[in-house]
């Protein structure tokens, strides 16, 4: 009994330290983004300032095309999300529930791609896209991410667990394979689809290198790339950068507040082993 207590006191201390170190930077940046530049660069730094202003938010909107970045990021993230959950659930379903020749082979083919690092494909992808005239276009951003091995793997592990007689009963009712998939299987997979959608959304929203490489015009840039490149050649100011950072984090943060379960499930699923 005594040991348990000591154990829990120790672990609670650990948790509180971690909690503070996680929360504090966010609070600091949030408050700073409403301070004026003089208060931000004031030394010694203080948590709270005398007065607050929206000037940084106005500034960031003036210096970079923020609206454009937000729209681009949304188109990129939502586009990838919709297409990839469609294709991934197709493949995942077929690999789990349909018996066809070479199924295992194709499953391994898909799984192998999970281990291809982006480092080796980034230059060839750039060359392919510029050959196809897709650099600096939305299709160029979206189509190469149309399917992911992880998504297929995740959907397959879900469909594998469904009972076999579900489809059999439907076949006896005269439904064709597509109808079975769309009317029976897909509705059952809703939680998995949402989890995958969120995982994909998060990945694209936060992606930096890929969209940076595949776009040339400022008007095609995404939030992450825009923010990373915000520092001017010679002068940087903290206030607007912090405002931009807050704006870029906000959408995912809001979705996280509403749909926490699915975010956490995505991570949990990634750790599953077949």
């Amino acid at each position: 009994m005594k040991r348990t207590n000591k154990h829990s006191v120790l672990s609670n201390i650990l948790l509180i330290i971690v909690l503070i170190s996680v929360v504090f930077p966010f609070l600091w940046v949030l408050v700073s983004s409403f301070k004026n530049e003089a208060d931000i660069i004031n030394y010694p730094p203080k948590m709270f300032a005398g007065h607050y202003t929206l000037a940084n938010y106005v500034d960031i909107w003036k210096t970079i095309p923020m609206t454009r970045y937000i729209i681009n990021t949304m188109i990129y993230a939502v586009g990838v999300c919709v297409i990839s959950i469609t294709l991934d659930s197709f493949s995942g379903y077929a690999l789990a529930r349909m018996r066809f020749r070479g199924r295992t082979f194709f499953y391994y083919v898909v799984m192998v791609t999970m281990f291809i690092p982006f480092a080796i494909t980034m230059i060839p992808l750039f060359m392919e896209l510029s050959e196809f005239g897709m650099i600096n276009t939305y299709p160029g951003l979206i189509i190469p991410h149309a399917t992911t091995a992880f998504g297929i793997f995740m959907m397959r592990s879900f469909f594998v667990g469904l009972p076999e007689d579900l489809a059999e009963a439907a076949r006896l009712d005269g439904l064709n394979e597509f109808q079975i998939y769309f009317r029976i299987m897909l509705p059952l997979a809703k939680p998995q689809l949402i989890t995958l959608a969120i995982f994909s959304l998060m990945g694209s929203w936060n992606d930096l290198l890929y969209p940076m490489l595949m776009t040339t015009d400022q008007s095609m840039r995404t939030l992450a790339a825009g923010l990373a490149l915000i520092g001017g050649q010679h002068i940087t100011y903290y206030g607007p950068v912090m405002a931009g950072t807050i704006i870029s984090m906000l959408p995912l943060f809001i979705i996280y507040m509403f749909a926490q379960k699915y975010f956490i499930q995505g991570s949990a699923m990634s750790g599953m082993k077949e």
Binding site: F126, L129, S130, G133, I135, N136, L213, T216, D217
Partner: peptide
């Protein structure tokens, strides 16, 4: 250079 190669 990227843009020149991609004809953009």
């Amino acid at each position: 250079p990227t843009a020149i190669t991609a004809k953009k």
